[in-house]
């Protein structure tokens, strides 16, 4: 068992060297890393290379993936949002509470959106009006939001028994899980938003040089505020998906996983200093993490070792960021 884990470790180290040589094109290296992981796991596990397993990877990556789009926007501005899983837990729990109280599905969905707007907006206000560093802000609000989630139900889980929620979380459309459709849809929107709209261009500009953007007549505060709102909305939608998949709202949802989404986004090539990176990179980063987790689980690598590997991947991701020139000096 250990040997296999070691082999996996060695393979990802080999790919580090490849990363270094083709740092120029992040996307290509990420695809390469994904392929290498795929080949390794296919050789080691007979179950890995199958449509069913791939769909599994897709489903399990959807929550992380949806959240990562919002975080990508915040990080392109040079910010960070640690409060996403707390927002997700709050939103998921709120859905469960509302449905249990007899709300209709549209009302619950609107509530989820409102929850994202308000909680994300709170982050945005603190960052732009009180001018507190985004990391500290969202570290604080992550505690506050999760606490509010616990307070909402006195710490209890709320089960969801609803056809539509089941369909959202576990249903299929044209043979593909809805979770995957939803993720594709979200990524398509973000792709166009970031690449082809004035708003997207402004996000990159503010992340690249806030002073120059300000002097170019861009309302830097507004863009920052909107970005954190978007991050909140995507976290809330991920929370909806989370509660739909497990058929319950849980105040503890995502505890201990807070950093996964940051790992995914950094791995995807979004520079920690902002202004650089592509949403497709984020998608690849999410998939790499999901494949890694799936493959290691299939190989029955114990959770302890998985944690170790996730930690290594985090370091690796940041190391890649420094190679791209966005490093800590």
């Amino acid at each position: 068992m250990k040997d296999k884990a070691m082999q996996v470790g060695r393979m990802s180290l080999d790919s580090v060297k490849k990363f270094r040589f083709s740092v120029v094109n992040t996307q290509v290296t990420l695809v390469l890393a994904l392929v290498i992981l795929g080949v390794v796991f296919s050789t080691l596990s007979p179950v890995f290379f199958s449509v069913r397993n791939f769909l599994n990877v897709g489903i399990s990556s959807s929550i992380l993936g949806i959240m990562a789009t919002g975080l990508t926007v915040a990080m392109l501005l040079g910010g960070l949002d640690i409060s996403q899983y707390s927002v997700a837990a709050f939103a998921g729990l709120l859905t469960a509470v509302l449905l249990k109280a007899g709300s209709s599905i549209p009302v619950a969905l609107l509530a989820v959106l409102a929850c994202g707007v308000v909680l994300g907006g709170i982050n945005g206000l603190i960052i732009t009006r009180m001018r507190i560093n985004p990391i500290i802000t969202t570290l604080g609000t992550s505690l506050i939001f999760r606490s509010l989630a616990f307070i909402m139900t006195s710490g209890r889980y709320i089960a969801i028994d609803n056809e539509v929620m089941n369909y959202i979380g576990r249903g299929y459309f044209l043979g593909v899980p809805n979770a995957i459709w939803f993720m594709i849809f979200v990524y398509a929107i973000f792709y166009y938003m970031l690449k082809y709209t004035a708003f997207g261009r402004k996000i990159y500009a503010v992340g690249g040089n806030a002073d120059a953007s300000f002097l170019s007549g861009i309302n830097v505060k507004k863009i920052r505020f909107q970005a954190f709102m978007i991050s909140g909305i995507m976290a809330a939608l991920a929370g909806l998906m989370m509660s739909a998949q497990v058929s319950a709202g849980m105040p503890t949802a995502g505890e201990g996983a807070e950093l996964d989404v940051i790992v995914a986004v950094i791995l995807g090539g979004i520079s920690l200093s902002g202004g650089k990176g592509k949403i497709l990179g984020t998608l690849l980063g999410v998939l790499i993490l999901a494949v890694l987790k799936n493959g290691l689980t299939l190989l029955s690598v114990q959770a302890f070792y998985q944690m170790l590997i996730r930690g290594l991947v985090l370091i690796l991701a940041v190391f890649l960021d420094t190679l791209r020139g966005g490093g800590y000096r």
Binding site: Y196, A198, R201, Y204, G208, A212, S213, G275
Partner: peptide, 26 residues
């Protein structure tokens, strides 16, 4: 003055993005 990591094009239109919009998109 400049977003150094961005292209000549992106820098030149930075102040006039809202004027080259067509509906939602640039």
């Amino acid at each position: 003055g400049l977003v150094l990591s961005h292209t000549v094009k992106e820098n030149i239109t930075l102040a006039s993005l809202d004027r080259i919009k067509k509906g939602l998109f640039l």
